[in-house]
Design a protein around this nucleic acid. Structure first.
Lengths: 150, 150
DNA sequence: TTTTATTGTTAGGTAAGCCTAACATATATA
DNA sequence: TATATATGTTAGGCTTACCTAACAATAAAA
């Protein structure tokens, strides 16, 4: 269900108007599945949708959807920036992981990303460069090397 | 299904002998669910199990189970050591996440943990201490402070 | 060794989330 | 406006993973 919400915010931003078909295409499911899901989400008070009409999020739905989207972005950033996972895999992993992390973990991970992005060193902090090297060579740069080379 | 494999290795190490009931208790499901799952896993060639007998993993099952368990541990370590998530939440999150991360991400995350644990600083590396502080205060220690205080 | 208790299996049911096929509505075009 | 096309809905089915209840086998106790 979270995926539906996410797709809806995404499409809303992209197309202004959100239709059943678009959601289905976005998520790789057929229309009846979307209709069904919208029924459930309506009952939960997360979307507004009248027969044959466009799909809208309620305030609550919008908040929830955006929380999930944020979580998704945080995960992608972590996977790409810290672990250097390729874009495609990072997105796929994030799509699956975003549904399984707790609020607490999401918050701390966000902060971790902030910590990194906020680094005083331009772009990638020292220790992450050191990790890059560790990845490549299996060896850690020592302090001297770090100062000389990085 | 991965959860079943994991439970089986765990119980095997703990009790030597693995029974349907133990698996059910470990996973919080009833016996019939376990029986059914064992049927599926048997068909996939991951467990050996004859009616009313003890449960064993095949070689392939064992390898797979251990891969998942390793993945679980990696995630727990990351959550606890890096993000300082409490034990309980870390475990719960790991249980869910372990099924959704790609091979590549698992590998890189493991390496990330190795990088941290292998740190030349005793225990927690400098930058992680800096992150701890960032978490607490929202502020980054500058270079001088880092040398003075940490 | 017979009975009882425990553990395991089978049968049959439920809910979620997907599907196809058939039908309904809305939109675009002739 | 009438028809054709596109989109949306409903009905009914499938699969997965769980469940309870009833039955079967094993293990423990009398």
């Amino acid at each position: 269900m979270e995926d539906y919400l996410e797709a809806i915010v995404f499409l809303k931003e992209k197309n202004e108007v959100v239709r059943v078909k678009d959601i289905g295409e976005e998520l790789g499911v057929k229309n009846p599945s979307v209709s069904e899901a919208l029924g459930v989400l309506s009952k939960k008070g997360l979307v507004k949708h009248k027969r044959y009409g466009n799909v809208e999020l309620t305030k609550r739905g919008d908040r929830l959807a955006k929380t999930i989207a944020r979580r998704h972005n945080t995960l992608v950033k972590f996977l790409k920036e810290v672990l250097k996972i390729d874009q495609k895999t990072a997105r796929e992993d994030a799509c699956r992981m975003e549904h399984s992390i707790s609020k607490d973990t999401a918050r701390k991970l966000t902060n971790f990303i902030n910590f990194i992005e906020d680094s005083p060193y331009s772009g990638r902090p020292q220790w992450l460069k050191s990790f890059d090297n560790f990845e490549k060579t299996g060896k850690r740069l020592n302090c001297r090397m770090r100062q000389d080379k990085v």
